[in-house]
Design a protein around this nucleic acid. Structure first.
Lengths: 168, 168
DNA sequence: AAAATCTTTCAATAAATATTGAAAATTTAA
DNA sequence: TTAAATTTTCAATATTTATTGAAAGATTTT
């Protein structure tokens, strides 16, 4: 397989994959492109490579920067700004987990907390089932939350070493 | 908070939460409704509770059954079929992990495997960066894959006990 | 076998989401 | 300061995804 072909293939599949992750297709494609680029790329470069509009590149690079997956870099002597992606996959995963936890899990747990105190007879099966379901999710979510915190704080060698040995 | 209110609240937030999980809003709402219902519900029941069309209920319940989150149940003496959701949150999570792994991670790893053999000079930074990125993702994904397999096979007590003690 | 009940399908439509592109804003160079 | 280069915004548009509802298909009862 040729470089050009492999590159297109990779960008396309990472794009499709991203949609499963709360990351839109274009955003994931830009991310893919930057991950396999040895050097930072400009807005213009990305527009050409992926054949998308300037506005689209602008919005999605900003989003990637928000997610902490991409950095703006300044190249001496160049006027425009360039973008560069974190290439260490462990850091990429950690960052995604961190952001998703913040954006999804935390708000969910907060919201469920409000449902704890329901008026009404705990003997009523309807009330009981709701309370049990909510508290089950909260308990589980709380544990997942703690676990993710640990993972986020762990460094790669710890993860690949200790945890995976544990799971062997 | 009253039962009615708490119920609406729960269904709505679980619905929003679901969209983060590759599960569409309505599907997640039906799932939420079934989780908090002490007894199985019919298509008609779901239509009324969530105020959605018959076709919509039909498509989304089928999808939930496909995901292994909901069962069709037959109630003696009743002609129509009823639906009931797994209420053990550990099993729900396990099932979701299992399905997502099957639908997303496995195909991704398979695809990346095809990108391994790229013609061209490994000294070329462009080739090198692509190869390194792909192999990094594959390695990481392969580990995640193994870990998820373990989790899927583990039972609740093992998870909540051993793993979380480990992560304390 | 016909009627009644229930489930599924799917074309049409609606709603949500992503993309464009040109104008406005900002930044840097002359 | 003015001009040139670059980035940002956002209304209009296109695309994708979800929903409806009525007709067709099954299944069960009489």
């Amino acid at each position: 397989m040729r470089l050009i072909e492999a590159k297109a293939q990779f960008i396309s599949s990472w794009g499709a994959f991203g949609t499963y992750w709360g990351i839109n297709r274009t955003m994931a494609q830009i991310h893919a492109l930057l991950m396999i680029s040895p050097d930072p790329l400009s807005q213009e470069d990305i527009m050409e490579e992926l054949d998308i509009s300037r506005g689209n590149v602008n919005m999605n690079t900003r989003e990637l920067v928000d997610w902490g997956l991409v950095d703006r870099v300044l190249i001496p002597g160049e006027r425009k700004e360039f973008f560069s992606a974190e290439k260490d996959i462990w850091k990429v995963a950690t960052q995604i987990i961190k952001e998703r936890k913040k954006r999804e899990l935390d708000p969910m747990l907060k919201l469920l907390g409000q449902l704890e105190n329901i008026d009404g007879d705990r003997k009523d099966p309807k009330v009981k089932q709701l309370v049990d379901t909510v508290s089950g999710i909260r308990k589980f979510g709380g544990q997942a939350d703690k676990m993710l915190d640990k993972m986020i704080r762990a460094d790669e060698s710890w993860f690949l070493g200790t945890l995976l040995k544990f799971f062997k």
